[in-house]
Amino acid sequence: MWQWQTQPLTWSTFLAMLIGTVVILLLALGVVTYGILAERKVLGWMQGRIGPNRVGPFGLLQTVADVLKLFIKEDVVPAAADRPLFLLAPVLAFVPAFMALAVIPFSMQHIFTAGIGTGLLYYLALSALTIHGVMLGGWASNNKYSLIGGMRSAAQMLSYEVPLGLSLVGVALLAGSLNLNDVVRAQQHLGLWFIIPQFLGFCVFIVAATAELNRTPFDLPEAESELVAGYHTEYSGFRWAFFMLTEYVYLFAMAGLTATLFLGGWSGPWLPGWLWFALKAAAFFFFQFWLRNTMPRIRADQLMTLCWKVLLPLGLVNLVLTAVLKAVLLKG
């Protein structure tokens, strides 16, 4: 029942796939719930505070309470807004972010996800689609802050999509496959995580990924001091919650991708594969929280200069170096 990648389609394999999808949805919701709590706790500790500790033991139910509160809040749609698009935008943002999870190999086989041969391309395509929800949300709000925030988001995410994609070509080159599980196997076969032979690529990737996620130091679309809340200024209640959910689901997907491509995915000694994967993804989460506490926000002009004048040339250099390395390895 769990081997649907190699078996013909029957009702039983279909049911297993459906269960897999729902499991990943619940997993994503759980990771987002506790990711947000972990972020607030880590931020608190780094600033010498305690962090949320009132709701439930050690504050473990804080995010659950927040979500329930948002769920029963009034859904305000501004009179000036473009109503259909305004209502649709959070859905347009959420669906591709969730679908991107469909190719991440959480364990040794693709048990709960799809092992398609074009996994990496699929991920990049879907992560780029999330921009539409953000931009349409900003535009449909008919608010000046939202519009500027939405346009800035779009410009930033579009720009950083290029070095992100370019840095991953190096991984595809070393692995010789775009199937994410094959990438993990290639690292196992090499006996080395790709973060070492692809260190330059990893640096480009991690900067571009942080910018793609709109996180500090690249959180310009939500620069509170100048744009109120950016593209979701006019959103309230659960519709706003969906934008937040999108952001954290996307963070989860990016953590999964980083763990898979650069940190060896589920491979590792002694511990079971899913636990290795969870540890590596958690390391990415922690790194992001750490950055948020350490870095100031960069300026808009620095943002674009960094992307096009530093990351893109570095990505090209990394690609050529990797090609030479692989050609030498093939000869030797």
Partner: peptide, 10 residues
């Protein structure tokens, strides 16, 4: 089958 999986995710 894997592509059907993606439709399910959608």
């Amino acid at each position: 089958n894997a592509y059907l999986f993606i439709v399910l995710f959608l």
